[in-house]
Amino acid sequence: MKGRNVYSLDTPYAQQKTAQQAADKAYARKIHKRRFLAMIGIIGVFVLVFGVQIWKNQRQLGRVNAQIQQTQTQLTKQKSKQKQLNSHIKELNDPEYLQQLIRSKYNYAKKGETIYNFAN
């Protein structure tokens, strides 16, 4: 090393200074480690809370989808029943069908007709 003066580091001040720097570095590492662990803990709590919320929402969504499916099935049944009833209403508006229904169901007869019931 040309042109530089190299001093010996064996002096008590230099040793104290390097020891202090080493202690400062160790303390800084300890503080950084604590901060890192605290941040990991906080992030872990957030992940846990949000994970539970997502899980609850997924369960609720499943229940709602099951209810929707059940309601869709009921709706389909009701629509088919409504079609049958509407066709029955149209048939009841037909005088010939109505007359036939009254005669068969209520044993109604016109004047001069005789009704015979046979045992089966």
Rank of each mutant, 00 (worst) to 15 (best):
H32D: 15
Y116W: 06
Q70E: 14
D94M: 01
A14I: 09
T18W: 07
F46Y: 10
L98Q: 13
I102G: 00
A66E: 10
R4S: 09
R34D: 14
P12M: 10
Q99Y: 12
Q58P: 02
R4V: 11
N65L: 09
K77W: 07
N5I: 14
Q21F: 08
A19K: 10
K90R: 13
T76Y: 10
N65I: 03
V52A: 09
Q100W: 09
Q69P: 01
V47I: 13
S87A: 12
A14K: 10
V64G: 00
D10N: 13
K79V: 13
Q74D: 07
I102P: 00
A26H: 06
I54W: 08
A38H: 08
F118M: 04
G44V: 03
R34H: 09
P12N: 13
E96C: 02
K110T: 04
E96Q: 15
D94S: 04
D24P: 00
K79H: 10
A38G: 06
H32N: 15
V47S: 01
Q84S: 13
Q100T: 11
N65Q: 11
T11M: 02
A119V: 15
T114V: 15
I54D: 02
G51A: 01
V49R: 00
K17D: 13
A23I: 09
I102Q: 08
K83L: 11
L101T: 04
Q70D: 14
P12T: 11
I43C: 03
P95N: 04
F118A: 07
G62Q: 08
I42R: 05
Q16I: 03
Q15M: 07
A38W: 06
Y27W: 11
I89R: 06
G3L: 07
K83Q: 13
V45A: 04
H88T: 15
M39T: 12
G41M: 04
Q69T: 14
I115H: 02
N86V: 12
Q58C: 07
Q78I: 10
V52W: 05
H32Y: 14
W55V: 04
Q74R: 05
Q70G: 12
Q60C: 01
L101A: 08
T71M: 12
N5L: 13
K90F: 06
A22R: 07
I31T: 08
R103L: 02
A14M: 14
N86Q: 15
N93C: 02
K79P: 02
T18V: 12
L9C: 09
Q72V: 05
Q53F: 08
Q69M: 09
I43M: 04
I42Y: 00
A23F: 06
F36A: 14
N120W: 10
T18G: 00
R29K: 10
Y27I: 11
R35M: 07
V64N: 06
T73K: 15
T71D: 14
K81D: 15
I43T: 05
A38C: 05
Q67P: 00
K30W: 05
Q15W: 01
K90C: 02
L61V: 03
T71S: 13
F36S: 14
I68F: 04
K83T: 14
D94H: 01
H88L: 15
Y116D: 09
L101M: 06
